[in-house]
């Protein structure tokens, strides 16, 4: 995970410049997807526990 070019100056640099271009995109995409899924699952569990708590009070 580094600059997609080797240079000591920006002169002549064109095209995609984002870190990891052409190498590790899949890793980061998978990580983002996993983060979203984990967050939603934990949100679902929080809701479930909250509703169960209300039901048990009644």
């Amino acid at each position: 995970m580094e600059a997609p070019f080797e240079a000591t100056s920006w002169d002549g640099i064109t095209g995609a410049i984002y870190a990891g271009y052409g190498s590790v995109e899949g890793l980061w995409l998978a990580l983002v997807l996993a983060m979203v899924v984990v967050a939603v699952v934990l949100g679902w569990r929080h809701e479930k526990h909250a509703y169960n708590a209300v039901k048990s009070k009644d």
Binding site: I13, G15, A16, I17, Y18, Y21, E25, G26, L29
Partner: peptide
Amino acid sequence: LPWSQYMGPNLD
């Protein structure tokens, strides 16, 4: 595609 060269900072 999310790994396309255009889906992030690109000087062109």
